[in-house]
């Protein structure tokens, strides 16, 4: 197999998909290396969310190759399989189980057997308890562990969702607009949290907030009209004339 595929955690080559004649992705290619934190920017309709749909198995590409962890062809798998392989996804709108407590949300997300009977007879072990407590501390929700997720603030829901992704123990984390609707203080804390997470796994962040991207200080990919417009450091990308014209504005 191509060395480029085997050395990558995520490999997209020439991926296209159309919806009713609209080309959401147009020969998109990019590679994320193991342990990398990558930021994706781009105007509305650039195909950022569609790209995540394809990686997580929600949408099948019309053409192109998508490989995970150097060998696994993601275009042949469904959402549950892909999640079990180790790809976690955070939605744009915080999506947590509102009628469960914070604790139960994390317990459900924990990377354990997910069949009907293994969940039916599941018992909380000391190990799982410790792991949940550790995640609660990481996302700073220890004090609210018994509260219903519905009663959390918007920012806390975003953090709970990130905590659920951590509980999944993914190798690759896809994060869609994690700081939308957050205060400045929450935004910079989220940047720290994501950098921390990226120490042990690969993370792809889609975001509009240029200040946040700058805080992250990582390689940036700019998408427009379903393909890669520019790739490089934030300064390189934000000085690219095509990026200025398509996205940042003059």
């Amino acid at each position: 197999m191509d060395a480029k595929i085997t050395n990558s955690i995520l490999y997209l080559d020439n991926v296209s998909v159309s919806f009713d004649g609209f080309r959401a992705l147009n020969a998109l290619s990019f590679v994320v290396e193991p342990g990398e934190l990558r930021a994706i920017i781009g105007p509305n309709g650039a195909g950022k969310t569609t790209m995540m749909d394809i990686i997580t198995g929600k949408t099948r590409p019309d053409q192109g190759e998508v490989y995970f962890d150097g060998a696994v062809d993601l275009t042949r798998k469904d959402e549950a399989e892909i999640a079990q392989l180790g790809i976690g996804r955070k939605f744009q709108k915080p999506t947590v189980f509102e009628s469960h407590t914070v604790w139960d949300n994390l317990e459900l997300a924990l990377n354990r057997k997910r069949g009907v009977f293994s969940t039916l007879f599941y018992r909380l072990t000391a190990e799982d308890k410790a792991r949940i407590e550790e995640i609660l501390a990481t996302v700073r929700l220890t004090a609210r562990k018994d509260d219903y997720a519905a009663n959390l603030s918007h920012g806390q829901k975003q953090w709970l969702e990130i905590g659920m992704l951590l509980a999944q123990e993914p190798k690759l984390l896809l994060v869609d607009e994690p700081v939308a609707g957050m205060t400045d203080a929450e935004t910079s804390e989220t940047a720290l949290l994501l950098k921390d997470i990226a120490k042990t796994r690969s993370v792809v962040v889609v975001e509009h907030d240029m200040g946040f991207i700058r805080d992250l200080g990582v390689k940036v990919t700019c998408l427009a009209e379903g393909s890669v417009l520019a790739e490089g450091s934030i300064d390189f990308v934000s000085n690219d004339p095509k990026v200025i014209e398509n996205y940042l504005g003059r």
Partner: peptide, 19 residues
């Protein structure tokens, strides 16, 4: 609890790896 998860946020349950 997974059932309630399916009721309230089916896609979240799917992306957590449940069938």
């Amino acid at each position: 609890k997974v059932l309630i998860g399916v009721r309230d946020a089916e896609s979240r349950t799917r992306f957590l790896g449940y069938r």
